[in-house]
Design a protein around this nucleic acid. Structure first.
Length: 131
DNA sequence: GACTTGACATGGA
DNA sequence: CTCCATGCCAAGT
């Protein structure tokens, strides 16, 4: 479902041609997360909270994490460009090695990742207003 | 139904 | 900088 204040914004906004938000369970949440993630330019990064905010789910960073967890791999969605606000790669439960895959993909795009999985988020952070 | 856990965020110690 | 507490919501037990 929509999250907190985002629920209000969603009801007012009503930008759901498919009637997605009209459902009690909001089945299109994952789709919206993936669509937004897909908009992240190569070589740039976004945080879970940032994605949540962009899709109108303010404060629902965790749900973004769940949406990406449900993402079937391999996938065309650049999920590797999403990191936490601390500027490091988050590990995925049940998916051993997904962390190094993510690090590798990011390095391939020119973003340095150290052994700790940390990266210069401030430098590569995606700013939609510049897009 | 509650209780716990989690790919998070934020602010204070 | 790191660690801890709090808020958040969904899924699992």
């Amino acid at each position: 479902m929509a999250c907190g204040l985002a629920r209000m914004a969603e009801m007012v906004n009503t930008a759901d041609p498919m009637g997605i938000g009209a459902q009690g369970r909001e089945p299109g949440f994952d789709q919206r997360v993936w669509a937004m993630v897909a908009r992240i330019p190569p070589g740039q990064l976004a945080t879970y909270g940032q994605i949540a905010e962009l899709i109108g789910a303010w404060g629902c960073a965790r749900q973004v994490g769940w949406a990406l967890r449900r993402l079937p791999l391999p996938s065309p969605i650049p999920w590797h460009r999403v990191v936490n606000a601390r500027g490091c790669i988050a590990m995925s439960p049940g998916r051993e090695g997904s962390d190094w895959i993510q690090a590798d993909l990011l390095r391939a795009e020119g973003i340095p990742v150290d052994a700790e999985g940390r990266l210069p988020l401030a430098r590569y952070r995606w700013r939609m207003e510049l897009a």
